[in-house]
């Protein structure tokens, strides 16, 4: 126990502080999203690169929970659906099930080049070339994969905040 405490102290605060934010008056997001987003992530055929960055976002350097955001296991608890991958045809039914289980208000974020437009898998018989073909997308976060800072900025935008300048 002593050694665990010593290592925890040695690591200290690994992360940067989350950016100071204020309500974006132009945002159409519900005010109840501010500082409180529950996120359900669905991998719809990603190569796993975007998932690695989502994991990193939850790590000590980024302080996702300091911003009031958390990943949730059940879509019934989720405000935001994040989707990665070009949307493999085999995942469409499960993706719809997940989306239908979410309460209103809800938002959908496309994570990574594949979810935005199909990426390197665009044009394949087995994919939908992005989520927009199957569900209404509120925000696109491009990148291959998008880094945790880009993901956090996107989540802040959907929560109705903007970084203070």
């Amino acid at each position: 126990m002593y050694r665990i405490l010593r290592e925890a102290l040695r690591l200290g605060k690994a992360g940067e502080k989350p950016p100071r934010t204020q309500r974006d008056p132009a945002s159409a997001s519900p005010s109840c999203f501010r500082h409180s987003l529950s996120i359900r992530h669905v991998d719809a055929g990603s190569c796993n690169g975007c998932e690695l960055e989502l994991h990193a976002l939850g790590g000590p350097h980024y302080g996702l929970e300091q911003a009031g955001f958390r990943f949730t296991a059940s879509p019934r608890h989720a405000d935001v659906l994040t989707v990665s991958g070009p949307v493999a045809r085999h995942m469409v039914a499960a993706l719809h099930d997940c989306h239908n289980a979410m309460p209103e208000p809800r938002r959908i974020i496309a994570i990574g080049d594949c979810a935005c437009s199909g990426g390197v898998f665009r044009g394949s018989y087995a994919v939908m070339d992005g989520i927009a073909e199957t569900l209404p997308v509120d925000l696109q976060i491009p990148g291959c994969p998008p880094d945790p800072d880009a993901l956090l900025q996107g989540l802040l935008r959907v929560s109705g905040d903007r970084a203070e300048t």
Partner: peptide, 11 residues
């Protein structure tokens, strides 16, 4: 499995 099948070989 097969849920993430993307048709890589044909691509």
């Amino acid at each position: 499995f097969g849920y993430t099948h993307k048709g890589v070989e044909r691509l």
